[in-house]
Simulated scan of single mutants.
Amino acid sequence: MSQEIKAAITAVGGYVPDTILDNFQLEKLVDTSDEWIVARTGIKERRILADKQKATSDMAAAAITELLAEYSVKAEEIDCVLLATSTPDKLLAPTAPIVCTKAGLRNAWGLDINAACSGFLYALSVGAAFIESRRFKKVLVVGADTMSRIVDYTDRNTCILFGDGAGAVLLEPSSNYGLHDFIFKTDGTGNDFLSIPAGGSLQPVGDISLHENLHYVKQDGRTVFKNAISGMTSSCDELLMKNGFDADAIDWIIPHQANLRIINAVADNLKVPMSKVKVNIQRYGNTTAATIPLCLWDFKNDFKQGDRIFLTAFGAGFTYGSSYLTWGN
């Protein structure tokens, strides 16, 4: 009888652009203030991909390149790249193959996955299934978004929230550690509360949509806020119950970095101290699919072998859920 195989995170990488857009700069663009933004979101600054000749594929490739170099992984050994993004370089062709080429992954194939802010978690589960099937030995899961290209910088309700960045993890087989379980949910009734109305097959970009800025992110903040807290809390609770332990047995929670008040509320609901919750939203803002892997990248030295880690996210769709893994390889 063959031994059970799990998909362990054996390497992490990240990339954020050099250009910083802080709250004081936003004060010059819209009617807002640093004090207002920090109090309501926890965000102090965000990174912006200022070079208009570059796009999501460049950030994803940079995160992969950093990972390969840091962990001495050979590019030709990578079997597959799963790219979670809501901001592909183009609607067609997919971005993952471009990433493979730019990162020099000549033996890998690539697939785009769009589940908005939950995309990295969904892609992680797909990558884990590939590893568990024993079909592949090295799978890269990347979350990358260039949100600055789809944000209306005259809309103070959305432009303060988002930034650009990319994070990547390498999944490999392990007999001891890795992804144990996940709970994912979707609720299509939330579609209109966080979306880009124009640009797809339902409403292609045209004169009217351009005039009304319908090709930018639109959000009903109050509804999203309420549902994010509920969705992230309930999926963590369900995952805890399914796996038979209490929240105090969790070593770390890495939540999607959308709003510090959401993060605080989820931790409070779960009765987990903020000392166990990883937060970097103050530096990067909401980088959508990149927030969780960027947290893994930023705080990788804090994780010890065997640590129980919960990842949880909520995004447009609505999409939401939580994953449970143990750290180590």
Rank of each mutant, 00 (worst) to 15 (best):
I48E: 02
T287G: 02
S175E: 15
I64A: 12
T56E: 05
S133F: 10
T186N: 12
D268Q: 15
D187V: 06
V139T: 12
I64P: 13
K304V: 10
K52W: 01
V30H: 01
K54I: 00
V81P: 05
G321T: 13
N301H: 14
E238M: 07
C159M: 06
G119R: 10
N191M: 10
Y284M: 15
M274P: 08
W36K: 12
N243H: 05
Q53Y: 03
A69L: 14
T223A: 15
T326P: 08
V279Y: 12
I183C: 03
I254D: 09
L83W: 11
E172C: 09
E77D: 15
Q25Y: 09
N157K: 15
G110W: 05
A265M: 09
K278H: 06
S195W: 12
A228C: 08
Y320H: 09
R149G: 01
M1Y: 10
D34G: 06
T287Y: 00
G190M: 05
N227C: 11
D298P: 01
V16M: 14
G231L: 04
S57Y: 02
V217R: 00
R283F: 13
Y122K: 09
D112G: 02
K185Y: 04
R47T: 02
G13R: 05
G328R: 07
W252M: 08
S230Q: 12
G110Q: 08
I196C: 02
M232G: 03
D31L: 07
L294G: 01
K6S: 13
I43N: 02
F303P: 06
V16Q: 11
P197D: 03
T10R: 13
T95A: 06
V30Q: 03
N243P: 03
Y122N: 14
F162N: 04
A129D: 15
T186C: 09
H180Y: 12
A258R: 07
T326K: 05
L26F: 00
K304S: 15
D155P: 02
D89C: 00
E212M: 10
G178W: 01
C117T: 06
V169T: 09
P94Y: 11
W252E: 07
R46I: 00
I160S: 04
T158P: 09
I78T: 10
I150K: 02
A289G: 06
T10C: 14
A116F: 07
S86Q: 12
D18E: 15
G306I: 11
L105P: 09
I281H: 03
D34L: 04
Q3N: 14
Y177V: 00
